[in-house]
């Protein structure tokens, strides 16, 4: 039996998820609130096959897409002008000859475990440095598994822009994990 307390207990987790994607406390609050209400109303349809968190997350994902669609106009205003050029971005990671500036390490089992454990912390910190739409594209693609055509539509960008944003988000996030670990554990 699903109780309101069980649903409420997942609020912090859902808030984190929503905030990572929307980066707007008010909008995240609203999406989570709507999710919890919808969950309470349909608690009877919770089958118990998945965890409460998984079930709530799936409701939240739809709310987040709704929010992004509603916000599309505002998001659109944010232009690409204030973003760095492709060359400037590449210079952060690659030398003039096109090779990596820093060697790329192999991540083994310990790193894989760390990524899983630290994902939200690292993503939250790391995505602050990304343009908002770039972080959104990453969440839609990698966390929600949407395909490129859907993402282009939701964010109102071209397929090329979408690929650029995803590339930058992946490069940045990888770097954030590396820097985090090396900072703490460099031998």
């Amino acid at each position: 039996m699903l109780t309101p307390e069980m649903i409420e207990a997942e609020r912090p987790y859902l808030m984190r998820y929503a905030l990572a994607q929307l980066r707007d406390k008010g909008a995240a609050d609203e999406a989570v609130q709507e999710t919890l209400l919808a969950a309470l109303e349909s608690a009877g349809s919770f089958s118990g096959k998945s965890s409460v968190r998984t079930w709530l997350t799936s409701i939240l994902r739809f709310k987040l897409i709704d929010t992004i669609r509603r916000e599309k106009k505002e998001v659109l205003v944010e232009s690409f002008d204030d973003e760095v050029s492709d060359d400037e971005f590449a210079d952060l990671f690659f030398a003039q000859d096109g090779h990596w500036r820093e060697p790329v390490r192999s991540w083994g089992a310990p790193e894989a475990t760390l990524i899983a454990r630290e994902f939200w912390d690292v993503f939250e910190r790391c995505s602050q440095a990304m343009p908002r739409r770039t972080a959104m594209a990453f969440v839609l693609r990698e966390l929600q598994g949407m395909d490129i055509a859907e993402i282009c539509k939701a964010l109102d960008v071209t397929a090329t822009n979408c690929s650029v944003m995803l590339y930058r988000a992946r490069m940045s996030l990888r770097e954030c994990f590396e820097i985090g670990w090396l900072g703490g554990a460099k031998a």
Binding site: T54, T57, E111, I115, A116, F119, E142, L173
Partner: peptide, 23 residues
């Protein structure tokens, strides 16, 4: 380096999908 990068991308995706589904 690129071989490692490629594997890292796969590892990031695996974790993101897991996290994203609420597991």
């Amino acid at each position: 380096n690129c071989k490692n990068f490629s594997r890292q991308m796969a590892q990031l995706r695996a974790v993101a999908r897991q996290v994203g589904s609420g597991d």
